[in-house]
Design a protein around this nucleic acid. Sequence first.
DNA 1: ATAGCAGAGGTTTTT
DNA 2: CCTCTGCTAT
Length: 678
Amino acid sequence: MCNWLQELNPQQRAAAEFGEGPLLVIAGAGSGKTKTLAARVSSLVARGCDPGRIMLLTFTRRAAREMVYRAQTTSDDPEIPRVWGGTFHSVGARLLRTYADTLGLNPEFTILDSTDAADLMDMVRREIGLTGFQGKRAPMKKTLLGIYSKILNTGLSLTQTLTRFYPDIPVEGDQLRGLFRRFAEYKQQRNVLDYDDLLLLWSKLLDHQPLQEHLDQLFVHVLVDEYQDTNHLQAEILRKMRINCHNITVVGDDAQSIYGFRGADIHNILDFPKQFPQTTILKLEINYRSQQPILDLANRIIGCADQQYTKVLRTTRKGDNRPLFVHAMDDQAEAQYVARSVLIRREEGIPLTRQAVLFRSAFQSAQLEVILAKYNIPFRKFGGLRFLESAHIKDILAILRIAENPKDPIAWMRILLLIPGIGPTSAARLLDQFNALGANPACLEQLQPPPKAKATFQQFTQLMAAITNPNPPPPHEQLEKAYRFYAPLMEAKYENARTRARDLEELGAIAQSAANRRQFLTDLALEPVSTGAFNPHTPPTEDEVLTLSTIHSAKGCEWDVVYLLHAAEGMIPSSMSMHDQDQLAEERRLLYVAITRARDSLSICFPAQYQSSPFRSGHRLNQRTSFLDRAAMALMDTVSAGDLLDGETAPVDAPTHLNPRIGKNAMQSMIDMWEDES
DNA sequence: ATAGCAGAGGTTTTT
DNA sequence: CCTCTGCTAT
Ligand SMILES: Nc1ncnc2c1ncn2[C@@H]1O[C@H](COP(=O)(O)OP(=O)(O)OP(=O)(O)O)[C@@H](O)[C@H]1O
């Protein structure tokens, strides 16, 4: 802890050693906010504060883990309770399990991820017979859930939300009210919570005065990282957590607010001093991350935005590497360039681990992924489609979820519809009967499935008996049993059953480290693994990997070398966000975040046209993103991707030697590929 | 009542 | 692309 403090500059140390009362640390990218917050936790513990009475709220659970780890390195003593660290959602889940009784909530609740919640919303929509009008179809389930979520997270009324964010929705406000009401009711009856419930119920918990007082005095310090990306509901929770005790530290950068689509409100951080009148404001002025030319570009980008706390980033780091603007013929050339350049950098001694490729939307890395696979460059992708969202993963998890919470309607529907011979009608009937029997797994045998489904249903009944007994096997064994039931169904249902089976193996590996089934399911829901976390040519054990990430998922991270793909109008800013001023401003901040991830080298790539266009029409000329104006261009060196690509066509030293297993996998895949089709 | 097929429509970012 | 809806044959 002492070395921690020594590494800090005077402003950072002032924040770390700050005593009691509200503290706002507002500072630009790379100024050591996160480092300072970790040091503060460490310092509080050193000053005798019980770690178990510190709450540290971060944006991802990974960030919380790292910070707690860094802050507590001095106390290896397992006797010392751990800091309450995590996202608002995960801490909420933990509090709700602990204090469920107060709310009359069953602590065995299961958590719906957003696709489950959308499915439930759709179920309820059908049930109440809500369809579209004006010749239009009813809004999609995700849109409906989006509206619901927006209302709760922003604290706006339904009408305000509709006019402000969904002016074209083909349903009436009153119809939505009925839908949402039934949706909420349904969740309660079935003992399931969605993401919003984790926050909303935490807030409700604090409306109960004795509990409010209890939590208020239990937590001696509450600290929040990335405060600029919290929403109204989260601010409300903090307010209620800190009515008597005003020890609250929030840290953030208004220029990096990029979660507006989720209700994040910049006013939380801007108005923090108003909410806590005694607030001490500390600013961190020095950037320790990037070379100055990178910051010059960042300053130019953000200088064009109207921001409240103006910060000009300046660094103490030496080096004058100007950012590159890489002009590529098309997206293919762009991907080639990046792959090639990554290898060259690696030859120069920068391991893949210290390099990253960033992009606005997950699909934008598709071509690059193909090329990386060809060049045998191991990578892991963050962001985009979730591992858990693929059908086969949801299917098999549904089995464990039913065991955990036999009332879970979404899990039940999935499984029932999976069984050949059971369609929507019998599924609904069976579910009703089962609930009438008290949703007791022991009563499964009393149900009457359609004759054609009898055999499979029988197997399912036996499976449930095996995993719901009072002494259930560990999660990975439950998963294995579930797999034995599921495998034949999966093979019948999907062409590519083999790839999917491999995913299920990965899931099994994750389950190995889970203490019990509830923990396993909760962790998966609260920290969704992205699909890109596993890819066929990068074994999970490989430790030198290139990072591919959406800008959103790159928040708070840094790499020596950073590439940004697709700096074209319509990509960043995304064409979805170009017509609304607020959204456009957020896209600009997104670019700012991307740029400020780079320590030594930044390359912004621009493909002049799309060969394989993500937007139907074949060849289309692109425009450079409007965020890079002439002044910004003047801060970069423009190069042509072709300069690197001309000459040899073979990759520079394709590093198969990185991991011999990559080669072996390729060999095996040549055999396996024949098994999918007959 | 289910399953299989054809056609249409929507397509960002995450806990 | 891939998901959802509506139609038809069993
Ligand atoms: N006083 C310091 N001396 C040396 N290095 C520092 C100091 N403070 C921070 N750093 C380094 O600067 C880098 C950025 O720090 P950190 O990630 O905490 O910044 P941040 O403000 O949280 O950034 P962002 O807003 O982009 O998330 C890290 O590599 C960190 O180790």
